[in-house]
Design a protein around this nucleic acid. Sequence first.
RNA 1: GCCCCCAUCGUCUAGAGGCCUAGGACACCACCCUUUCAAGGUGGCGACAGGGAUUCGAAUUCCCUUGGGGGCACCA
Length: 502
Amino acid sequence: MANSRGRKVFMNMEETVRVRYAPSPTGEPHVGNIRTALFNWLYARHVGGKFILRIEDTDVTREVKGAVGAILDSLRWLGLDWDEGPEVGGPYGPYFQSQRLELYQAFAQQLVDEGYAYPCYCSPQRLEEMRAEQRRRREPPRYDRRCRNLSLKEREALAAGVEKPVIRFKTPLEGDTIFHDLVHGDVTFTNAALDDFILLKSDGYPTYHLANVVDDHFMKISHVLRADEWLASTPRHCLLYQALSWDPPQFVHLPMILGSDRAKLSKRHGATATTEYKKQGYLPQAMVNFLALLGWSLDDKTELLDRKELVRHFSLERIGKTAAIFNLEKLRWLNGVYLRGLSIEELVKRTLPFLEAGLPSIVARPLSKGYVSQIMPLIQERMRTLAEAVELADFFFIDELDYDASLLKVKNISTDVSGQALIASRDRIAALSTFAAGALEGVLRPLAGEMGLKTGQLFGLLRVAVTGRTAAPPLFETMAVLGRERCLKRLEVALTKMENLS
RNA sequence: GCCCCCAUCGUCUAGAGGCCUAGGACACCACCCUUUCAAGGUGGCGACAGGGAUUCGAAUUCCCUUGGGGGCACCA
């Protein structure tokens, strides 16, 4: 059937939607990669299908220890739960490709037996020389098919040699391979432009092409949502499905996420690992919202969508096709929005670890949760990340403020007058019966007028004295949280600093 | 080099032939609020890559050019 946008969407009522996220454990999951996971998850949850996690550990040389754990952590952090896969199992396991080797080998053999594939004895060195030669002649780098039509005798002779063969797919020399992509529509590739790609490596491990086709088939994957970089490989997969007489899944190629220089997002562009954003103090809900909007949109105005709303509204039809640049500024804004939406209790819980880790070591640990709870309302709307709480609130914790005495200078006011203002403020504060924001304002605001100062001038002076900085949360609330003793002490220190100034 | 994909403000995007004088958001600028910084409010700046064609009418359809991206491994 055709939907209202004209794209073909095949509704499969009797078979449930089964999608998968299939990362390879080569390091920390990339945000672009996790966006793919998110889209798969959103689609599965939207239609009530299954979200499967499969680990594509078929490259022994690139495997990084701990990477699987990092992948699981990233998914869990974002709240993307999987129905089948590591730790939860499922009816179509195992979900680690390294545990399915016999399966790939069996089908590679079947393809050889049926004439769809062949063993290739060319050494890596020979292939490298071949490619170098092709580059020199400005030809497209591609396997020259030397082993494609070996006679039985030649093959036996080579098999006796030292080179362990790889299995290559016998790509049709003619014709086109056409497939339908749910976001791109029909895409046509000329078979002649494809080469005889490797299915099985000499170490017995499959390449991505073979493994993903075999697994997607046996795991009954209905839709393959993956990044655009895979589009060019899709005809190979189609050819494989054909050779194996299997029905291919629906293909859905997602727009890529690019760095600020429009190149594929990489380490050069700053933080790319999902866990890195967690460490920097981004909220998972902000991350999910932000990532969802990279390549997908609800309408012409909605920017804020929580997890539930995303699940409810997510649709393949609204996936875009243009690559998106990862806009850190917008993420920061969005994170601020979510931070402001948190209850104080929740905010304290989330911020505490960042304060514990970021505050100077002279500050006594553990931090008082009650004290932090008083501070949070004052910095909540100023935070863009949890980590920023440290710089925003450190003066609440540090006893000896380190600031330049020149900050105590008030424009057009002599230090003499400033000093008197400080003394008068100190005296009034000391005499206060209740040390609260309202009371403080009640005695200090009139003081400004009495001394012939503008409120801004007096408050600015006090702000520096009390916080050591010119930009801080509202003065009276801040003083109230700091407490009388600390405020009085800081005023004394300011007085001393000011004397040295003149 | 070859193959494929893509093309609206700086960025993320809305737009499915007349609702477009092209809408929203981030960023930026101004103003308001205000004890500073934020937050919030109001306003502003700012785009259909170019050229043809189809049509009464094109950001929207088609073609070409240009630009950008991706792929062309015993990596995924």
